[in-house]
Design a protein around this nucleic acid. Structure first.
Length: 856
DNA sequence: GGGACAAATA
DNA sequence: CCAATCATTTGTCCCA
């Protein structure tokens, strides 16, 4: 078996090196300078990681005077005082060393060198190999067959390894001659005098000839040069003193137990984890958990209340609530908690678990996967004091917003290049909870590299609990009105169906586009307007509209379509979503679905409740305020066009909003010289179309004008709003060049197809490049506004709640006596959330249901 | 179970 | 010559 290797570090020397190697602007958020601590810690950890020492120890200089000062007052007298920005860092360094459970040596009146020398020589005797890590060349004198030096040449990563051969090569001397050399030439940095007139070259020459200082002094006659002879004679004593000063003491009175220097697995890794968090060394945390493999996770089951109470947890924990059952009716069957060193499965009654969570989560930083549902459960149980600090789902979403349905296993695979072990049940939960630490390190690193960390921490993470609260709040639905609507629609639909089949002359399934196509275009021989991509007859609303005058069956089919859509999509399912306990509908807001940063809503989707048609609005009407409350709806007016004005910096567009003009009226005047009902309508289509990258064909289709005319409008628009054209060109160029576009708040969207050879793919990517910064920035603004509004409601201790977000609209439920205050507060918060170069405007409406609302 | 189609919202 | 305004969710049909 090969010999064990002991690493001995010169703490002082390395800390100094780190201090000068790194900028002193490296601080924690409270301003504490930590550059030296960071550099030292990083060096230490990477040493452990790369060299895997068997044993390790770190020595520090004694505070104040040493035995060398007694011998020679001037020792190190020319040293500058320790810089203020470094002084306090020594204590932190020692904290780090202690937290990592590495033995630390510091003995009164002795320097780190002496402790290291003594340890090294002892270790050599005990048959260890030794590596000394230092930034001080003095230590080179200790080199032997079993002792080598790692010398940090410059900075903290430029390291040279000295063994006997390397030393001889560099110095043309044996290592033990180094002290003789210093005796002769002195050492400026330690203020060791040496002999005047003898420097680097001469000292080496003399030692090569005579061997050691004593031999030189005994044979001064044989030294060349009159002056040199004289100096050696006069300063012989000084040289001997110099030698004593330069000689590292190897017989310090130390009690050495090498067993205690064995590098152990950290017993309490959590203390190091906490310290690194305090020092904000997030990039170094990876070294701590580094040795825990995915498969190794073993959990400790906690079945007893007493056992639970004796659990001591660090300030950051990964946690998974083992919830079972449908949304909002879940029961908590257990809790998995992971720290860096242990995973616990707490298996107790739900009531006890809730009490435990309430007490435990306060002041803890929580790492959770898919946190929203768990936070919703906590809020439901009245637990409000918690602090989500990481969710890999959202991190992965920000990094790749267009990627769909990435789950935890996918994230682990993608970012850690690891596969989940083949385990199930609690074991799997333990693995997945434990891995959150690693994921945090890796993903936050990636986020930082992509300028997404702020967005993640300041927008998406805090939004999670807001969304959890929205979902928990739900919105009340009038079951009675819903039933009325059901019968009303059912009657109308069956009547229509009869009429349609009569006109068609046969029974058929109107819901089947295929069967409908056969009836319309084969049987009734109506003109084929359009075919679908698969070659079938298109029966879309647009096609039906064009056939309107051709047959009396057409309007009936259109009406049938719209009524069945309303019934099957809204009226029929809505009932089933009503929570029997709350009488309310609790949607599911997804935060990681859309490519632009918007939210989405499902089960049911409450972001597409009808509003445009009279019939559709009846569905809106069933969403009501509970007794004693009003619904308050606040929506941003033309937020996307305002965002366009801001990011394009187009003067005319900006001015219009700054002066509070009606933008569609203004554009009508710009394009047509006059604003009438007709020209304003066209102008509105142009305004919106531009933000979507509309083509002349698209605009023509929409306005039912010809292509040439549409092109004129678009060209005219660009000539009146030239910076908008510049914006469009700029975004396409940017996307082509860097592969992505960004929102005002740095949210990214990658557009790999922007350089596709496929014309359509490329065109689509170009339109997306135009639209995403607009839609995405608007989404960002709304998210920030939600955080602001929620905070303000809480601060003002209002009993009002946000129920829904519909992209540019918030719906709140407000006690009648708070309406005035809340209407004002919400408007102000939403308008002032961000400060663009154009004002944001919010319209507030109030009503008893979501349909009948009055301007407030 | 999944693709095609259609339609609701912003 | 093609296809032709962003972003979603949901429902039905229909084939496998």
């Amino acid at each position: 078996m090969s010999k064990q290797r002991l690493y001995l570090l010169d703490g002082n020397s390395l800390v100094y090196r780190a201090f000068y190697a790194l900028p002193d602007t490296l601080t924690t958020s409270d301003g504490t300078v930590t550059n030296a601590v960071f550099g030292f810690t990083k060096m230490l950890l990477s040493l452990i990681d790369n060299q895997a020492p068997d044993l390790i120890g770190i020595a520090f200089d004694a505070q104040g005077a040493t035995f060398r000062h007694e011998e020679y007052e001037e020792y190190k007298a020319n040293r500058k005082e320790t810089p203020d920005k470094l002084k306090h860092q020594f204590d932190l360094v020692k904290e780090v060393v202690d937290a990592l459970e590495i033995p630390r040596f510091e003995v009164e009146s002795l320097e780190a060198d002496d402790l290291i020398g003594t340890l090294a020589i002892e270790a050599e005797k005990e048959d260890y190999k030794v590596t000394i890590v230092t930034g001080d060349r003095d230590a080179l004198q200790l080199i032997s067959d079993n002792i080598e030096i790692m010398y940090t040449k410059r900075g903290i990563s430029n390291i040279i390894r000295y063994d006997v051969d390397k030393f001889r090569e560099d110095y043309e001397l044996d290592p033990e001659q180094l002290v003789d050399k210093k005796a002769l030439m002195g050492d400026k940095s330690d203020n060791i005098p040496g002999v005047d007139g003898i420097g680097d070259k001469t000292s080496t020459k003399l030692l090569k000839e005579f061997g050691g200082l004593e031999e030189v002094l005994d044979n001064i006659d044989q030294v060349g040069g009159k002056k040199r002879k004289q100096m050696l004679r006069e300063q012989g004593a000084r040289a001997k003193l110099s030698k004593r000063l330069a000689t590292i003491k190897v017989d310090c009175p130390l009690e050495i137990n090498f067993d205690k220097l064995v590098l152990a697995d950290l017993e309490d890794i959590d203390q190091a984890y906490d310290l690194f968090n305090r020092l904000e060394f997030t990039s170094l945390i990876s070294y701590l958990g580094g040795h825990k493999g995915l498969e190794k996770v073993d959990y400790q089951e906690v079945n007893e209340l007493e056992e639970l109470q004796s659990l001591k947890l660090p300030s950051t924990i990964a946690i998974k609530l083992n919830l079972n059952g449908p949304r909002l009716k879940q029961t908590l069957e257990g809790i998995i908690i992971a720290t860096l060193e242990q995973v616990y499965y707490i298996n107790l009654a739900e009531k006890e678990l809730i009490t435990y969570l309430e007490d435990t989560l306060v002041d803890k930083k929580l790492l959770m996967y898919q946190a929203k549902g768990q936070l919703r459960y906590l809020l439901q149980q009245g637990i409000e004091e918690f602090n989500l600090s990481f969710d890999p789902l959202l991190a992965a979403y920000l990094l790749q917003p267009s990627e769909d349905a990435i789950d935890l296993a996918g994230i682990i695979e993608k970012y850690l290049q690891q596969a989940e072990p083949e385990v199930t049940g609690i074991k799997l939960l333990a693995v997945r909870t434990n891995i959150l630490f690693k994921l945090q390190i890796k993903l936050e690193e990636e986020l930082k590299e992509n300028d997404l960390l702020e967005l993640f921490q300041d927008m998406e993470l805090p939004l999670v609990r807001i969304l959890a609260q929205l979902e928990l709040n739900g919105i009340k639905v009038s079951q009675e009105q819903l039933e009325n609507l059901f019968t009303e629609l059912s009657t109308k639909i069956s009547k229509l169906k009869k009429e349609i089949c009569n006109l068609a002359g046969e029974e058929f399934n109107i819901n089947s586009p295929q069967q409908l196509g056969t009836i319309l275009f084969d049987k009734l021989d109506l003109p084929v307007i359009k075919k679908t991509s698969t070659g079938n007859y298109s029966t879309s609303a647009k096609v039906l509209e064009k056939l309107e005058g051709n047959h009396e069956i057409i309007p009936l089919i259109s009406e049938y379509r719209s009524l069945t859509k309303l019934k099957s999509t809204y009226v029929d399912p809505l009932e089933s979503y009503i929570n029997e306990k709350t009488g309310r509908i609790h949607t599911n807001f997804k935060q990681q679905v859309t490519a632009t940063g918007r939210l989405s809503s499902r089960e049911p989707n409450l972001q597409n409740i009808p509003i445009r048609t009279e019939e559709g609005r009846k569905i809106r009407q069933v969403f009501v305020a509970q007794e004693g409350y009003k619904l308050v709806a606040a929506d941003y007016s033309q937020v996307e066009l305002r965002v366009l004005a801001h990011i394009s910096q187009d003067e005319r567009l900006k001015k219009a909003y700054q002066q509070g003009l009606d933008i569609h009226t203004q554009t009508a005047k710009e394009l047509f010289g006059i604003s009438t009902k007709q020209t304003r309508r066209k102008a509105k289509a142009v305004n919106f179309g531009i933000a979507y990258g509309i083509s002349d064909w698209g605009l023509a289709d929409r306005l039912k004008i010809n292509k040439r005319e549409a092109k004129e409008y678009i060209d005219l628009y660009f000539s009146r709003y030239p910076k908008v054209k510049e914006y469009i060109d700029d975004k396409i160029r940017q996307a082509k060049k860097q592969g992505y576009v960004t929102t005002i708040f740095d949210r990214k969207r990658y557009l790999p197809e922007i350089n596709s050879r496929n014309y359509h793919k490329r065109q689509f990517a170009e339109r997306t490049a135009i639209n995403t910064p607009i839609q995405g920035s608007a989404a960002d603004i709304m998210k920030l506004a939600m955080l602001d509004v929620a905070k303000a409601l809480e601060k003002e201790e209002l009993a009002s709640d946000i129920l829904l977000q519909v992209h540019d609209e918030l719906v709140l439920e407000v006690p009648k006596d708070e309406v005035k205050k809340v209407a004002k507060l919400v408007k102000k918060r939403m308008e002032d959330t961000v400060n663009l170069d154009v004002p944001l405007e919010v319209d507030v409406k109030v009503g008893d249901n979501w349909n009948e609302m009055e301007e407030y």
